[in-house]
Computed example of a mutant assay.
Amino acid sequence: MTNTATTPSGQPLGISHKASPTETMFDRLRKQNRPAFIGYLPYGFPDPDVSLDALRIMVEHGVDAVEIGLPYSDPVMDGPVIQAASQIALDNGESINNVFKAVETVANAGGVPLIMSYWNLIYHYGVERFARDFENAGGAGLITPDLIPDEAGEWIEASDRHGLDRIFLVSPDSADERLETVARNARGFVYAASRMGVTGERDTISSSPEHLVERTRNAGAKNVCVGIGVSTAQQAAKVGSYADGVIVGSALVHTLLNDDNRTARDTDEGLRLLAAKTDELAEGVRTARS
């Protein structure tokens, strides 16, 4: 792979010293005594244009940061709702080349743009090329569910050069040593999966993520956000009472799917339901510590 991480004169690029937009967001919300609301939606679902409208609606109705998903053909972490949405996006011809439009849309709407992607997509696009294009679009950070810090050397270097956040995942089964490694290499926040397994809505949230947040903070992480399973305002409030951020994916994606969970809902109805669900969850997040 050609190394393009140089200045026009051929000198290696240095480390960026710009502030992390994600950490700046957490600092601002901490002063308000509330957690962040982080919402997920795959780019290109239900189609590229509507997905941009959906991202704007999420920010306008209370989402602080948006995880823009890059649909992938082998999504090992995604549950059936997100798998269905991602497949619709792939069938529509979604590709990584166009996702930066979504990044710009979130940034222009006033949200913090994150991308969530399996590493294979970034690797084949080109790590340095991705970091450059992501930064230029106004991106804040990358969530990599299948990349661990031990194998992330190229991404750590590229993200340092371009001032991008690195969000790695931990789970209730993570050993203390693993938590320390993640905390040491993360920038922005650590993504604490509330349970083992794939994403999806759940009727209840166990106490294990609260313990995981405490362990991750003790390992050195400044900001720890919880995702997987949060789908109601009550659950969002519970998680937000102890976590720095509440991550919601399937419950938002579900609003844009028909009841068969395989086809896209009518656009106007879907966007109306998305706005209502975002409002509901945002209220839970805002009142989490009141």
Rank of each mutant, 00 (worst) to 15 (best):
N3K: 02
N3M: 06
T6E: 12
P8C: 02
P8D: 07
L13M: 05
L13W: 03
S16A: 13
S16I: 07
K18P: 10
K18L: 15
S20A: 04
T22Q: 15
T24R: 15
R28V: 01
L29T: 00
K31G: 03
Q32G: 03
P35K: 00
F37C: 01
G39K: 01
P42Q: 01
Y43T: 11
Y43L: 03
F45M: 05
P46L: 01
V50T: 10
V50P: 09
S51H: 07
L55Q: 12
I57Y: 14
V59E: 09
H61L: 04
G62Q: 10
A65I: 08
V66A: 09
L70F: 02
S73N: 04
S73D: 09
V76E: 08
M77I: 14
D78E: 07
Q87V: 06
A89W: 01
D91V: 07
G93F: 05
I96M: 15
V103C: 05
E104N: 00
V106C: 10
N108T: 12
N108C: 07
G110C: 02
G110E: 07
G111Y: 02
P113W: 06
P113T: 03
L114E: 02
I115M: 09
M116G: 13
M116A: 01
S117K: 03
S117P: 02
Y118H: 05
I122C: 04
E128G: 14
R129D: 11
D133G: 08
F134W: 03
F134P: 10
E135G: 14
N136E: 08
N136K: 14
G139R: 00
G139F: 00
G141M: 01
I143M: 03
D150N: 07
E151C: 08
W155C: 04
I156Q: 09
E157L: 12
E157G: 03
E157F: 06
A158E: 04
A158W: 08
S159V: 02
D160Q: 14
D160Y: 08
G163E: 08
D165R: 00
R166P: 14
V170K: 00
S171L: 10
P172G: 06
D173P: 01
S174V: 13
S174Q: 07
R184Y: 03
N185R: 12
R187E: 03
G188C: 12
Y191A: 09
A192E: 05
S194I: 00
R195S: 06
M196V: 15
G200H: 01
E201K: 01
E201M: 12
R202P: 15
D203P: 15
D203H: 08
I205Q: 12
I205C: 14
S208A: 15
E210C: 14
N218D: 12
A221C: 06
N223L: 14
V224S: 13
G227W: 10
I228K: 04
V230Q: 02
V230I: 10
V230S: 06
V230Y: 01
T232D: 06
Q235T: 09
Q235M: 08
A236D: 07
D244H: 12
V248R: 10
L252A: 04
L252G: 03
L256P: 12
N258E: 15
D260C: 09
D268I: 05
G270D: 03
L271W: 15
L273Y: 13
L274D: 10
A275N: 05
T278P: 10
D279P: 11
L281K: 05
L281G: 02
A282G: 00
A282N: 13
A282R: 13
R286P: 00
T287F: 10
S290A: 13
